[in-house]
Design a binder for these strands. Structure first.
Length: 725
RNA sequence: GGACUUGUAGCUCAGUGGUAGAGCGCUUCAUUGACAUUGAAGAGGUCAGAGGUUCGAUACCUCUCAGGUCCACCA
């Protein structure tokens, strides 16, 4: 054996051995109790970062269960990540001086498809290089035809149950990226903007958005406001920038008499409060900002101006006309921005498909309350519940081409919508017209990924081309679904709890009647050595794959687990990874010691595997040996308990400490001078037990050494987990 | 405005109702056969502050101070 462990000669070879032997498949333990984890699907187009490397938590759980004899499934997949991917792709286009408007829908979709396709292999390679024992034959992509069919089926079912409706509401719209969002994608930031006090007939009123004044359809005051009570119900008339205006004065308790002058202009098309007020008072809508972010023809000479310019020009014109009384320059408030491009979002009126969340959320809450889902750490149970209690209806329409197109058709003649499970309807069920046009929108990515646990398992049914609609028999045929649903654990970062975890619970219960997973384990975010968030702009990003190449995958894995408790952010440094690399070398050199002794002794010593603790105890003659056996026995118990309780950091720390400072520093030193046939067997057997315990954490090096020692072709990955009697 | 969360050795963090741990760093010494990607010894912390519960608190409760994150329709 080499003096130093060389992971580069080992990792690829070992991974291939595992894969070729079918060890990643649940079928290696055909009679075991099922244990399943669905991999949170990474974006198909993006390279892996350290967040993805945290999947090591899942690999540890899965390897542990496999050694425990469970029929263990870890199912890989990738996400088309609608908006994220289209956003990245458009930036690529921009670099070439092009934009999405240069292509038609089909062409653009194909181009993004090719773009994603060209990146997908890379991601798979990276996951493998970290040693993840995923069953690649069961790999799924959110745009696989089988998955799409299931997503359609869910949509139709929700629609039939009246849990999906189409409505004209104000939605948050990014005029740059050209799509609407759900509430979750909106990032609120605090900002300083001028507050303009404008003259409106007899009133003065304050607003940050003078450019929307052309969309006003009323003026509102508080119903009890003595100053203005007499105006309520009356109409005011005054000269504005584009002619004479007549506005109704309404009384509405949403108006805060303390703010500004206590008078508000009401613009139902461009403000959420005003929209609600408009509904209460039956006010007309006047859309003065278009989806391109420019003022519409309702604004007269201001038509075509972008919002920011319009604000400047309108306020200047108001000033010229003497309609601007003052400007408060120190006004701060929060504005809604696009979480992706950072631009201010426009509330715009648009018809969209919405999920009626309340019934789904109530069912999810109920399941959580009943303890059907366990959260680790526990505090996230409250977080999830709070989200479920406060969800607004979920806008699932996106004005993107990259995604699953919504299976809804509008009749040109009677305007009624027809929703199907994906088939093109032949005629309008309402008026029999054949003129039907499909909605151009696609689903919010989270609508499909929210169905991931059951969709991935159902789609494993071996009927290759089931027809639409999917029958319940087809679904029943999926052995994987029967066997592995609900899955055992969902492991992901706490940052996507509301986006993903909560929605999986809602949709999972709705579609299958069962929770999608029994335990949710939420890991923290990986930060740099100073605890700062890793980001490209900070330049502090460490690439897990580079680190694995430099220090071994095992070292990277161990560094991610060691000292990192569930739900808390973890700060990672190259020093830490190097420290773990040193540990791999320590493990290696214990093996080397054992190996050298065997070779140099005459007669040659013998390496034994599969002796029980009890058999070992019978061999032991010295006190030290006896104590060591006892200590290992305790370590087995401790480690097992820690992993079962998801305390992976404690398990890892215990193993590290024991292997290095007990086994190597003390025991090996002690035994060095007195090795005989029996004590040698004790040393190597204990060592092999330690290798088993370490295997889930550091699979490559332990497998490599096990291969050298075990003599036959058995693999550590499917060896039995040591049991303390 | 609300919710959650953190404050433990120089740095990054574990941990526990019984007078504190790890990794990295630091000091001194050792070392030609398992390993310098090493070993031995060591320095270093009134576990943010105040009060309470307790025989006993760093750990449980309350408050204060200081960070962080997320949510929130105030024009």
């Amino acid at each position: 054996m080499n003096k130093i462990y060389n992971h580069k000669e080992v990792e690829e070879k070992i991974y291939k051995k595992w894969e070729d032997s079918g060890s990643f498949k649940p079928e290696v333990n055909p009679n075991g109790q099922p244990y399943s984890i669905i991999l949170p699907p990474p974006n198909a187009n993006a390279p892996l970062h350290f967040g993805h490397a945290m999947y090591v938590v899942e690999d540890i759980l899965v390897r542990f269960r496999r050694m425990m004899g469970h029929a263990t499934l870890w199912l890989p997949g990738t996400d088309h990540a609608g908006f994220e991917t289209q956003f990245v792709f458009e930036r690529e286009l921009q670099r070439e001086g092009k934009s999405r408007f240069d292509y038609d829908r089909e062409k653009l979709y194909q181009m993004i498809w090719d773009f994603v396709e060209s990146n997908r292999g890379e991601m798979e390679k990276q996951l493998k290089s970290l040693g993840f024992s995923l069953d690649w034959d069961r790999m799924r992509f959110t745009l696989d035809p089988e998955i799409i069919k299931i997503v359609y089926k869910t949509f139709k079912k929700l629609y039939d149950d009246e849990l999906i409706y189409r409505d004209l509401k104000l939605i948050n719209f990014c005029t740059h990226d050209g799509t609407s969002f759900s509430d979750l994608e909106v990032k609120h930031i605090e900002q300083k903007d001028p507050l303009y006090y404008m003259r409106y007939g007899p009133f003065s009123l304050a607003t940050v958005r003078p450019e929307t004044k052309f969309g006003d359809t009323a003026v509102a005051v508080h119903p009890d406001d003595k100053r203005y009570k007499k105006y309520i119900g009356k109409e005011i008339e005054f000269e504005s920038l584009i002619g004479r205006v007549k506005l109704k004065v309404i009384g509405d308790s949403a108006v805060d008499p303390e703010f500004g002058t206590g008078v508000v202009k009401v613009t139902p098309s461009h403000d959420f409060n005003d929209f609600e007020m408009g509904k209460r008072h039956n006010l007309p809508m006047r859309q003065v900002i278009g989806f391109d972010g420019r003022l519409t023809s309702l604004t007269g000479k201001y038509k075509g101006l972008k919002v920011a310019e319009a604000r400047r020009i309108v306020s200047e014109d108001l000033k010229k006309e003497g309609l601007l009384e003052k400007i408060d320059e120190r006004y701060t408030h929060t504005v809604a921005t696009c979480y992706k491009c950072g631009r201010v979002l426009e509330p715009l009126p648009l018809e969209q498909w919405f999920v009626k969340v309340k019934p789904l959320a109530d069912a999810a809450l109920n399941a959580i309350k009943k303890g059907e889902i366990k959260f680790i750490p526990k505090r996230f149970e409250k977080t999830a519940s709070t989200w479920l209690e406060n969800f607004h209806d979920w806008n699932i329409s996106r004005q993107l081409v990259w995604g699953i197109r919504i299976p809804a058709w509008k009749c040109k003649d009677c305007s009624k919508w027809t929703v199907t499970e994906g088939m093109v309807p032949e005629q309008c069920p309402n008026c029999k017209s054949k003129e039907l046009v499909q909605d151009t929108d696609t689903f919010d990515t989270w609508f499909s990924s929210g169905q991931w646990p059951y969709a991935t398992l159902l789609s494993q049914s071996r009927i290759s081309n089931f027809q639409l609609p999917i029958s319940n028999e087809d679904i029943n045929i999926s052995q994987d679904f029967k066997k592995f649903y609900p899955t055992s654990v969902m492991e992901t970062g706490y940052d996507i709890l509301p986006w993903w975890v909560v929605r999986m619970i809602m949709l999972g219960i709705y579609e299958t009647g069962k929770v999608p997973f029994k335990t949710v384990y939420l890991h923290g975010l990986v930060r740099d050595q100073k605890g700062k968030k890793m980001s490209k702009s900070r330049g502090n990003v460490i690439n897990p794959i580079d680190m694995a190449e430099k220090y071994s995958a095992d070292a990277v894995r161990m560094a991610l687990i060691f000292g990192a408790s569930a739900g808390n952010d973890l700060s990672l440094s190259e020093d830490k990874i190097r420290g773990m690399r040193n540990f791999t070398n320590k493990i290696w050199n214990i093996a080397r010691f054992i190996d050298l002794k065997r070779e140099t002794r005459n007669p040659k010593l013998e390496i034994r595997n599969n002796l029980t603790i009890e058999q070992l105890s019978n061999l032991a003659t010295t006190q030290t040996d006896k104590e060591m056996i006892k200590l290992v026995e305790e370590l087995v118990k401790r480690t097992t308990k820690h992993i079962e309780k998801f305390e992976l950091n404690l398990a890892a720390e215990g193993l590290y400490e024991f292997m290095w400072h007990e086994f190597a520093d003390k025991y090996i030193e002690n035994v060095k001078g007195r090795l005989d046939k029996d004590s040698y067997i004790i040393v190597n057997t204990l060592y092999l037990i330690l290798l088993r315990l370490l295997h889930p954490f550091m699979p490559f090096i332990t497998e490599e050494i096990f291969g050298k020692f075990s003599g036959n072709n058995s693999l550590l990955i499917t060896e039995k987990w040591p049991k303390a009697e």
